[in-house]
Amino acid sequence: MKQIVSILLVAAIGILIFSALYFSDETLKFNEYGNVNLDDRVSEKYIDKSVNGNTEEIIFGETQNAESGSANMVTSVVVNYRSFDTLGEVTVLFVSALGVGLLLNGKRKRKNLKDAPNFILKQGARIIFGIMVVFGVYMFIHGHITPGGGFPGGAIIAASILLLYLSDDEFRVKLSAAKAVESTAGSLYVIVGLLGIVLAGYFLQNFLPTGTVGEVISSGVIPIVYMLIGLKVGSELSSVIDGFLTEEVEG
């Protein structure tokens, strides 16, 4: 009975959404998939990096001192144009990791794994762990020129920690160290924002030279911010993993 009611309700919502989006006869229309003119959208200026009045074309490897020096346009939106959202999203992860910590608190020990890991698994996992951490670091250092950035980089680092958890039933991260990294990185992000007020005039404004588009050392504060985000996300997700793979000890 409940299923039938749910299906009917969902079908009604679906018909409503589809008819309003794709079969409406209004003059103002929802732009269908792929059928988009970027000139009508604010993002056109993100691509041309022309929010502050630049009129020249941006050329990879040539343009210098653009308002946002990142070759990856998504990164320039994430860390320059809409950096405040990113600060917010870092906060979301921060507060939910904190919530997990508050819920799964107390003195804890590792849960027993179903199959006790053998020596080869342990050592093999450690080798892969090193490679994964290096890849994660690569990911957030190159966030402004390749796909990637702080969030995927941090997630990869956390995944390498998860690998150690699964391959070794004794292993635990030092929660106090994870907390320290998390908190330092978060405070530094806010401080970068405040430095923007002091040195450039507005919160989170870029105060470093942006260099040449496409080089590793370029785009001002972006690599710094992404490094902080990477460390923060990595340590936060690691402490969340620890919460789920441990159990409370009595007393």
Binding site: N80, Y81, Y202, F203
Partner: peptide, 13 residues
């Protein structure tokens, strides 16, 4: 209107 990041609205937040 406070422009975060120094980007004028509607481009910045």
């Amino acid at each position: 209107i406070y422009e975060i990041g120094g980007f004028k609205p509607p481009y910045g937040i």
